[in-house]
Design a protein around this nucleic acid. Structure first.
Lengths: 192, 192
DNA sequence: GTACCTTGAGAACAAGCATTCTCAGGAGGC
DNA sequence: GCCTCCTGAGAATGCTTGTTCTCAAGGTAC
């Protein structure tokens, strides 16, 4: 037990997932080899494979990790705005606005991964669907707090606006889709 | 001139583009090899390369071809509904509903291709952005006809709803995102 | 000190695949 | 009939990459 390694398994895993997140998100799954992950993380191929049976396994671990991290970032970004008095559902679009300016922004990692059909299996697909479901659930908690009388269709509609805004910002490379989505959301909230 | 081939260049090109559309759309760009295109089209590798300098060229030709065909399908689907008295902008969602039931449906080919970063270059990206721009322009013509007094933000908002509905149907595998988007659009049109 | 176990570095292996090359056959021109 | 050109079939090439294997170094137990 407790071999005196230069790096614990947990530390190595974090380095790997950080590298995976950077590379997979920016270059796509097919565009990143296991050797690239090794080079970027400093974790040897041997150890990589001792912790993940295959590249597919690593991809699944990455998606799960990214899910928890992205959701945390997103809810933090919204909380900061609601604490300052903003409407929670509208604040989602301001959070997206902030995200789009991140260097290397390339849209939603989950939607992008889903599109790489040849790299993706049913496990990945399930994690991706779960992520989107999770986002809708989170929006629902925001809605029950700030808009308790909103009709059932409101939250799914906001979710569609969010995903549409994300993919269009990736296509066009500017913020205008988010502005359009936000205005639509304002109108829906007013009349809901 | 006019060599007595079994197949004219134009016929071969059509076979190739048909095969490319089926394969690239269903399996992604990275998931389809030039040999697969040959097998599915019956056009030899030699001829394939004589008409397209590289796989990237073929992908660009496919995207352009799919653009014209998809736009034609979309506008036909909407015209059929407006002829029957439907509102043009709302009919877009009914057209999507029809599309989702197509066997092998996998969302928007252009968004999916854009996500395959390692397979895509700037030419492809330009065709993809042009396709989405084109869709917005088309929505604008529908709006000027059926909703001449609509505010400027309406068409971009509908476009965001459409793209959001498309990607979410691909994620969840059901029609509910389209229903949500349609209801949202109805409310926006009522109050616009 | 010695045997053992784990690890990293990197070579080796095996596919998959874009692209090019070879070869033989068929059509046209004369 | 003969030469030439074009074509398809498919082999050959070269590169990328997922995965495994080899070997030597260093730490641990006793």
């Amino acid at each position: 037990m407790s071999p005196a390694q230069t790096l614990t398994d947990d530390d190595a895993e974090r380095l790997v997932l950080d590298a995976a997140d950077r590379l997979f998100y920016e270059q796509g799954i097919a565009g990143v080899g296991m050797a690239d992950i090794r080079d970027a993380s400093g974790v040897s191929l041997r150890r990589l494979y001792s912790q993940h049976a295959s590249k597919g396994d690593l991809v699944a671990a990455w998606l799960r990790d990214r899910h928890t991290r992205w959701m945390r970032w997103f809810s933090d970004a919204i909380e900061a705005r609601t604490d300052a008095g903003a409407d929670a559902l509208l604040a989602t679009f301001d959070a997206l606005d902030e995200w789009v300016d991140t260097p290397g922004y390339r849209g939603c990692a989950f939607l992008n991964s889903l599109a790489e059909t040849s790299q993706i299996d049913d496990v990945h697909r399930a994690v991706i669907a779960e992520h989107k479901r999770s986002l809708i659930d989170y929006l629902a908690t925001l809605a029950t707090r700030d808009h308790p009388d909103a009709p059932d269709w409101l939250v799914p509609a906001i979710a569609v606006l969010i995903d549409g805004a994300i993919v269009q910002t990736a296509v066009f490379g500017d913020h205008s889709p988010i502005a359009a989505a936000r205005i639509a959301a304002e109108h829906l909230l007013e009349n809901a």
